[in-house]
Design a protein around this nucleic acid. Structure first.
Length: 881
RNA sequence: GGGCGAUUAGCUCAGCUGGUUAGAGUACCUGCUUGACAUGCAGGGGGUCAGAGGUUCAAGUCCUCUAUCGCCCACCA
């Protein structure tokens, strides 16, 4: 399509990349094709509609798109299903923040208007996300796009809630949960980040009623003492035997609280006596249950002390702590304070210190759900890559606790539970009930709370396909083929999807999980725009091209490990490669004009270098495919990069230039066209999953190709392409040319100056080198070449030994003998060292007796070569004396 | 407190089941406007493979310990 003269010298990705996405989409390539056979399915980890896509997404999507494109080229029906997540608490927070900038709170708007406002936010960011995905080249099937709060998915959420409730796996209870005093909602255990903090341990004396004694308790949270209902000691702790059955008097409130005995108290911690605050500590709550103690909540929803706090009412928990400690000190009840390091839970979303808080919430009983998810690994129904994550996954399932799913938010799925105001009957239904099934009352109030965001996400693998309806899509595309995501959401999402998959679909949602790393900067920080350590991905794509960004990320990423030291400039790696390919193409393309690849007349005679590059190409195809199959994506990219740059451009194209320049009438014109065409047509296809835009552009400029590369067949290693002999001969050539170049450079011979080359070679190599005469002259910039066993050593020459052949550059009058002697001496020393190592090995009886025979043989051969090389170097050195 | 991972060139990383001279990119040095590409070409310097033990004829590679860094988990009152 593009004519040669139009190809600019430097590749302009922006100009090219804007052309192809619409082209692909219009032709329907992103939808699964109709072919039989198992489809390849990836469900996108739905990005939150909180904001635009960041670097993590770019990397995540690159991998998914790459896998999708690769499978599409293999002819499989492929579905990469896109969608977004309503991200309950996160989105509510950002919308509230925006309201706050206008001086408003959500309460000013009221629930309905606030939710409407949030939908507008969602639309805005959904549009941005969509644009970004298109810019990156994501080949997702937009016709199947879903949102976690759209009608179908909401229905699935209610269905699941009702089913689990009826099965007894969802219940409501008064429990200690993690409460965020800023977000004003309950959180799951996973939404709490524990941070090691230097705190203090306060030793507080509680007077013992009817005595002059005190019992001293140790606590990190003195402010919760106002909610104390007991002091507990270990029953076998003799120190406290006199206190058994006694009562302590809580300072300030003068509440009388029993001294109780409980096995869970650790006599070695603190004083061995512990204050019991059931409303503000999970283990105290359990202890309270065991001993039938009351629970006294002393804080409100904002963690401000409430009416149960006596004089401290109205203080924040931090102020309350300060004042209580002061007051205790005044009364002489503070025995001492010790530094104490412990971990404190913070809200995952706003980083506020969470409060263990007693409240009425909905929970999912997780143990029964966890069992099949756990067994999935040992049964081989689920594999997580890299494998080490499987242990993390399993351990979490083993220690699983019930999942608090109710959130005191407005943005999210309302809990499908209604209470009849007449008879207080609890109605749990998928569809909104109109009257109470028990008393017929019509005054029904729906639970005010919404569900945890992950309560919709964990259904993603089947809710997106139409469940609970038995849709065609559900039958065809469940389970998906692989889940690609980051390890940070193993618990939040991956494990829960597996549980839901087994519970509702009877099988795992995917057989394979591929967990990739995080993109970090030089300081090890996650890339983010707010930290200012990275550009917006879109901006980077504008500067470098989406292809370059994708390729750079993939090339820099070790399998499943974080990318360290990422910075904008790193994207040059991909950009330079794109430009390299572009220019290699510019070199070759004019010579391919009119070339018909499958011309039956063409039975080209291949020279060594042709056979060699085709052989290397076949190896590259094998290796790329093997690496992709094993999710060694960076290695696959490296294979293509190395083959294209190091072998094809640096060596083959240089060798091919004379034949190319000779034009279509020149000798071997057909051969060189055949080979370059084959290589390009193959490399473009191999590279397409990585660089979709550039490859599509080149494909359309490559004569003799049909259709679009996005649906071109994935290359198979060509039959009979393997030419070990040619490979060996070219390897020899490379060594010899390398040695000549080295000599030239060391001797400061100007690149423009041609030099005579003499190679004293014996054995079969001599004939091989003679056959490569033209190439040696070309690549070694030689004016003449003598090869053979009888080649005379020039009187004054720079010399070296390669594979036991002597190479001379006769340079009488041109070389500095002193420089050459130093250089040669260095070479000699190096060979000598190796020679010694080898000799010692071969004198070692144990080595000869115990090492494998081929290892010994190889060592012998090496030793002989080194010996003879050493001699040659010696002689050449002597001449220079 | 428990677990996982890392430690190889200045930086970021390869190095599969132990066996030629430990590689790449980048940075650095030298020389090149050679008819695809200076986003390039050619050549070069740079590593006692974190440390200590051990297994072995042979260890960057296997085992143990130590150190440092990172991550995750944990009702440490």
């Amino acid at each position: 399509m593009t004519s040669l003269t139009e190809l600019p010298k430097n590749y302009d990705p922006v100009e090219v990349e804007k052309r192809w996405y619409a082209h692909w989409a219009e032709r329907g390539y992103f939808r699964p094709n109709d072919s039989e056979g198992p489809p390849f399915v990836i469900l996108i980890p739905p990005p939150n509609v909180t904001g635009s896509l960041h670097f993590g997404h770019t990397f995540d999507h690159t991998i998914q798109d790459l896998l999708t494109r690769w499978h599409r080229m293999m002819g499989e029906p492929t579905l990469w299903l896109p969608g977004t997540d309503h991200a309950g608490i996160a989105t509510q927070n950002v919308v509230e923040k925006r309201l706050a900038e206008r001086g408003q709170s959500r309460f000013d708007l009221g629930r309905e208007a606030f939710v409407a406002e949030t939908w507008r936010w969602k639309e805005e960011y959904h549009r941005r996300i969509t644009e970004q995905m298109k810019r990156l080249g994501d080949s997702v099937d937009w016709s199947r796009e879903r949102f976690t709060m759209d009608e179908g998915l909401s229905r699935a959420v209610r269905e699941v809630f009702v089913r689990l409730y009826r099965k007894g796996l969802i219940y409501r209870g008064n429990r200690i949960i993690n409460w965020c005093p800023r977000c004003h909602t309950a959180l799951s255990d996973e939404e709490v980040n524990h941070v090691e903090t230097d705190g203090k341990l306060y030793f507080i004396q509680y007077p013992v009623k009817g005595t002059q004694r005190h019992v001293t308790v140790a606590t990190t949270r003195p402010e919760t003492m106002l909610g104390d209902v007991a002091v507990a000691v270990h029953p076998k702790d003799k120190r406290f035997a006199p206190l058994h059955g006694k009562t302590a008097v809580l300072p300030f409130l003068r509440r009388e609280i029993p001294i109780i005995l409980d096995d869970t108290v650790d006599p070695k911690f603190g004083t061995g006596a512990v204050k019991v605050t059931p409303a503000h500590d999970p283990s105290d709550f359990e202890m309270g249950q065991r001993h039938r103690l009351p629970s006294i909540t002393v804080m409100d929803e904002s963690a401000v002390m409430n009416e149960n706090a006596g004089d401290f009412k109205g203080l924040t928990r931090e102020e309350a702590r300060r004042r209580i400690v002061e007051a205790l000190e005044d009364r002489g009840l503070l025995a001492r304070v010790e530094p104490h390091r412990h971990s404190i839970g913070h809200c995952d979303r706003c980083d506020t210190v969470v409060e263990p808080y007693l409240s009425l919430q909905w929970f999912v009983k997780m143990k029964p759900l966890a069992e099949p998810a756990h067994a999935a690994i040992s049964r081989g129904e689920l594999t997580i890559l890299p494998r080490r994550w499987e242990k993390v996954y399993l351990r979490w399932l083993e220690g699983i606790r019930d999942w608090c799913i109710s959130r005191q938010l407005w943005w999210g799925h309302r809990i499908p539970v209604w209470t009849c105001s007449a008879c207080k009957e609890l109605i749990v239904e998928v569809e909104t009930p109109t009257k109470c099934p028990k008393c017929g009352g019509t005054a029904l109030a729906q639970d005010e709370d919404v569900l945890d965001t992950w309560f919709s996400s964990w259904l993603w693998p089947f809710s997106t396909l139409g469940w609970p309806e038995e849709t065609e899509d559900l039958k065809r595309f469940y389970p998906s083929s692989v889940l690609v995501t980051g390890p940070d959401i193993i618990f939040f999402w991956v494990a829960r999807m597996v549980m839901a998959g087994y519970e509702f679909m009877g099988r795992a949602p995917f057989p394979q999980v591929y967990l990739h790393g995080i993109v970090r900067d030089a300081q090890g920080r996650k890339l983010s725009k707010s930290l200012g350590n990275s550009s917006d991905p879109i901006e980077l794509m504008d500067r470098f091209g989406a292809d370059s960004l994708r390729t750079t990320l993939v090339l820099l990423s070790p399998q499943g490990a974080d990318i360290h030291g990422f910075s904008d400039e790193k994207v040059d790696l991909g950009r330079h490669f794109a430009n390299k390919l572009w220019n290699a193409f510019r070199l070759v393309q004019p010579h391919l004009d009119g070339y018909v690849p499958d011309d039956p007349v063409s039975r080209p005679t291949l020279r060594d270098e042709d056979q060699w590059i085709l052989s290397a190409l076949a190896s590259a195809v094998r290796s790329v495919t093997r690496n992709l199959r094993a999710y060694r994506i960076g290695d696959a990219a490296k294979d293509i990069y190395d083959f294209t740059w190091k072998e094809f451009c640096d060596w083959y194209l240089e060798m091919a230039k004379p034949r190319l320049y000779a034009g279509p009438q020149g000798p071997d014109a057909l051969t060189v066209r055949y080979v370059t065409h084959t290589v390009f047509s193959t490399v473009i296809r191999l590279l397409h999953p990585f660089m979709p835009f550039l490859t599509e552009e080149l494909w359309h400029s490559l004569p003799g190709t049909e259709g679009d590369v996005i649906v071109a067949p994935w290359p198979a290693p060509a039959r009979g392409a393997s030419h070990p002999d040619a490979e060996a001969r070219i390897a020899l050539l490379k060594d010899v040319v390398g040695a000549v170049r080295n000599l030239r450079s060391e001797m400061n011979i100007a690149p423009a100056r041609k030099a005579a080359i003499r190679i004293r070679a014996s054995g079969p190599d001599a004939a091989v080198l003679e056959g490569q005469r033209d190439l040696i002259l070309l690549l070694g910039r030689g004016e003449s070449l003598e090869v053979g066993a009888a080649v005379a050593k020039p009187r004054v020459a720079a010399s070296t030994v390669v594979r036991n052949h002597e190479i001379f550059l006769p340079l009488e009058g041109l070389i500095d003998v002193e420089v050459e002697r130093t250089r040669l001496q260095k070479e000699y020393d190096r060979v000598m060292r190796e020679f010694d190592v080898s000799r010692r090995k071969l004198m070692n009886e144990d080595f000869l007796g115990k090492a494998k025979k081929d290892v010994v043989d190889r060592e012998r051969e090496k030793f002989e070569n080194l010996g003879s090389t050493k001699e040659k170097l010696e002689k050449n050195l002597e001449v220079l004396q």
